[in-house]
Design a protein around this nucleic acid. Structure first.
Length: 117
DNA sequence: TATGTGACATCAA
DNA sequence: CTTGATGCCACAT
């Protein structure tokens, strides 16, 4: 059971682990995951990891949106609105490819997984 | 070793 | 609202 500090596992694997920790009906941002992994503002790495997540089954990539709650990665899913439907099926409100009440559904690993809050 | 790439974030105009 | 520029860094070739 490797830790996030373990460099023997790839950055991708860390991203997948975090994404899989996202609770049902919640969303988070690429930047938040990047910060949680200690990569700072390298949110691109997270997005890129998601691109490779197609090979993984247990990665709910649809729960990862950009800082504005925009479903930027929807084009990478099958169909045109699969990502939106997945989120809506979890109770997340979507309008114009954007999460409504983002603050309500937002799940930040830095906050939620931190004990010394 | 060097270069290209990317589902972002942030700021400036 | 939009466009453009810049930083960021793991990974593929």
């Amino acid at each position: 059971m490797p830790t996030y500090s373990d460099k023997s596992i790839s950055f991708f694997q860390k991203v997948y682990e975090v994404v899989k920790l996202i609770p049902y009906g919640r969303v988070t941002s690429y930047g938040a995951i990047a910060r949680y992994l200690g990569s700072g503002g390298s949110a691109r790495m997270v997005g890129w990891a998601m691109n490779a997540s197609h090979n993984r089954d247990d990665v709910p990539a649809h729960r990862v949106v950009n800082r504005s709650g925009l479903l930027t990665g929807k084009h990478h899913f099958q169909g045109t609105n699969l990502m939106q439907q997945l989120l809506e099926s979890e109770g997340v409100e979507i309008a114009n490819d954007q999460v409504q009440n983002l603050d309500k559904y937002y799940w930040d690993p830095n906050t939620e997984l931190s004990n010394d809050f």
